[in-house]
Amino acid sequence: MLDHVAAHTFHVRRGTMKNAFRYSVDYVLTDLDEAKPWLFSRNRFNLWSLWDRRHGGPRGEGRGVAWFRELLEARGFPVARAQLLLLTQPSFLWFHFNPVSFWIALIDGKPCAFVAEVNNTFGHRHCYLCAHEDFRPIARSDRMVAKKLMHVSPFQTVAGRYHFNFDLNERAVDIRISYENGDQGVLATLSGPRRPATSGSFMRAGLRRPFGGARTLVLIHWQAMILYLKRAPFLKKQPAPAALISESENLRVPGE
């Protein structure tokens, strides 16, 4: 299964320093079976591609879906009944950067656990595992709460919490992430329709939004420059988190 999600992402700052932006971005939702469109490949170069080593585990040393499966099994999740998916921004030619990908476990078509695989521009990664204690389906109205542990933006401290609202159905993806630290923070959304991926859809995406992750990286630095010119407080690079994985407050299991 390979779906192309022509999505939009929206970011707005909370607090005294205002800034907001919205842009389009291409994601794929896949069960990591062999890809069929000839402009898309797994683990080999193409116009668009997906590489196992870039997901599931330490950054650059990923093991793909095997990592996600082992993570769930260690916590007693009923993996045998689940469909395991990856929602991510694929590589475009040689360019790759993905601020956040999502590993998703579905049971009977409903998300029951997910991992937000977050990367920053300093080469660090942290994975936030979100689920209910009994692994019941995660409804769109459920707030999955996780303590922020990794430095992402030089304009936000490593404090506070992420509040995830997660909705994945047969028609669309709709994810809301609210970072809250007192009266400061950021609201970020990712939403778009699910459609079967085709070489035509990938060709159109390459023409409308060329360079994929490189374009995302440029947009991130552009917004950082805007905040810098607005004299937003700027923090130097922070150390990487000690652990790769942390669990949401909804999931009461021992940490790794």
Rank of each mutant, 00 (worst) to 15 (best):
residue 30 T to F: 01
residue 183 D to T: 12
residue 22 R to W: 08
residue 6 A to S: 06
residue 93 L to H: 11
residue 186 V to G: 05
residue 4 H to M: 01
residue 249 E to L: 14
residue 173 V to M: 06
residue 29 L to E: 01
residue 113 A to F: 10
residue 125 R to C: 04
residue 230 K to S: 11
residue 4 H to Y: 11
residue 181 N to Q: 08
residue 93 L to K: 13
residue 149 L to I: 14
residue 248 S to F: 12
residue 167 D to M: 11
residue 224 A to V: 11
residue 63 R to F: 12
residue 97 F to R: 10
residue 44 R to E: 13
residue 233 P to K: 08
residue 41 S to L: 00
residue 131 A to T: 06
residue 102 F to R: 00
residue 153 S to C: 08
residue 51 W to A: 10
residue 10 F to S: 09
residue 252 R to L: 14
residue 237 K to L: 02
residue 51 W to V: 02
residue 197 A to I: 10
residue 95 F to T: 15
residue 131 A to N: 07
residue 147 K to M: 08
residue 159 A to I: 00
residue 172 A to I: 01
residue 231 R to W: 12
residue 13 R to D: 03
residue 48 W to I: 06
residue 93 L to D: 09
residue 94 W to A: 15
residue 253 V to N: 06
residue 46 N to D: 07
residue 221 H to A: 09
residue 42 R to V: 09
residue 65 V to E: 14
residue 239 P to W: 06
residue 1 M to V: 10
residue 12 V to Q: 15
residue 252 R to F: 04
residue 104 I to Y: 00
residue 28 V to I: 14
residue 241 P to C: 02
residue 51 W to C: 05
residue 162 Y to I: 03
residue 227 L to K: 07
residue 57 G to W: 00
residue 78 P to D: 12
residue 43 N to C: 00
residue 108 D to V: 09
residue 161 R to H: 15
residue 58 P to I: 10
residue 9 T to C: 12
residue 22 R to I: 10
residue 41 S to M: 02
residue 249 E to K: 04
residue 115 V to S: 03
residue 100 V to C: 04
residue 26 D to C: 10
residue 212 G to F: 13
residue 162 Y to E: 01
residue 240 A to D: 06
residue 223 Q to I: 11
residue 60 G to T: 12
residue 15 G to D: 10
residue 82 A to L: 08
residue 54 R to V: 00
